[in-house]
């Protein structure tokens, strides 16, 4: 395990910069793909940049209290922290970030951190739709995390380590060394859980633009919203990086990284454009029936 060096900080910032830009373009591309399914052209590929500039450039903003300020900050800290504590590229001195022994457990915590910050901030905004969105979001997310946690423990048992780079190392060499082929049950459970955490249909009842005007962020605007949008560009990529490292052999250079992240993201988008939205109790039941048993089996059989 490497010692901390100061040069890691600019290297990590470089990773953050690359991932942020990749996320801005990738999210627009996914919006375009979803629009093509509806036979629309969709937003321009650079639209996310403009939206960010505009929201940072609005002239007024109001506050509902301290947690209202801190909510987006926590959210962004969750996304950035998640990204910085997992190795982006395997075997690269520059892009291993601040990963350390046992970072898998920390990553599991960080996935939840942003949502909790969001819940506190949205709660203080005092809007009823925000409260409804938060209660839906936390219950659905708790349920979706369970199969993911089971899958992660199964993988940790399988490779006998809690360090992400060790897990990636064990999968190198051939396609069939990937966890996808050595432990398919865990991967299945984790990918079903991944669907639940991507805020896309059928699990987007948290935002539900038609019924509870976009849920938790109802009251967020101007630079608060811009911070949350920035996080929305980073956070999905950070989650996908963990999944890619644990189950799909990691990446050794940027082109492979971009391709794998794109394909894993595309899985959620394809499911999203095909299936309609679940209500919360339906999605919880769905996770209990389909995902959790897979996760339990993965632990039992490993």
């Amino acid at each position: 395990m490497q010692q901390f060096e100061w040069i890691q900080i600019p290297y990590s910032l470089l990773t953050l910069f690359i991932v942020l830009n990749f996320g801005l373009l990738l999210n627009a591309l996914m919006a375009k793909i979803a629009a093509r399914v509806g036979r629309r052209r969709g937003i321009p590929i650079y639209q996310n940049y403009i939206d960010l500039i505009k929201n940072y450039g609005l002239r007024t903003s109001i506050t509902h209290g301290i947690m209202f300020y801190l909510g987006p900050v926590f959210r962004l800290a969750g996304g950035v922290g998640l990204l910085l504590f997992v190795p982006t590229l395997y075997g690269s001195e520059m892009f291993s970030n601040l990963s350390f022994a046992g970072d898998l457990i920390l990553a599991l915590y960080f996935v939840f951190f942003g949502a909790l910050g969001m819940a506190l901030g949205a709660g203080e905004s005092g809007h009823p739709h925000a409260a409804i969105g938060v209660s839906r979001g936390l219950s659905q997310m708790t349920m979706a995390e369970l199969p993911f946690a089971l899958a992660v423990f199964s993988v940790a048992l399988q490779y006998d380590t809690l360090t992400i780079s060790e897990i990636v190392k064990a999968q190198q060499g051939s396609l069939f060394h990937w966890t996808l082929f050595t432990n398919p049950l865990a991967v299945a459970a984790a990918m079903l859980s991944f669907l639940g955490s991507m805020m896309r249909p059928p699990f987007d009842v948290v935002l539900a633009p038609q019924e509870i005007p976009i849920g938790p962020p109802t009251e967020y605007h101007s630079s608060y919203l811009a911070l949350m949008q920035t996080n929305r560009m980073i956070f999905p990529i950070a989650k996908i990086v963990i999944i890619m490292n644990l189950f799909f052999g990691g990446a050794t250079n940027w082109p492979i990284f971009f391709a794998k992240v794109f394909l894993i993201y595309l899985f959620a988008v394809f499911v999203g454009v095909v299936f309609p939205r679940f209500r919360v109790e339906q999605s919880i039941r769905w996770f209990l029936i389909w995902a959790v048993p897979l996760g339990v089996l993965a632990i039992v059989l490993v």
Partner: peptide, 21 residues
């Protein structure tokens, strides 16, 4: 909808006045 698709021009609909321009 596909016929006119205003999203091409950077125009989007927001459900809450806080985020609308």
């Amino acid at each position: 909808t596909p016929r006119f698709d205003a999203y091409r021009y950077g125009i989007q609909w927001r459900p809450t006045p806080r985020q609308a321009n």
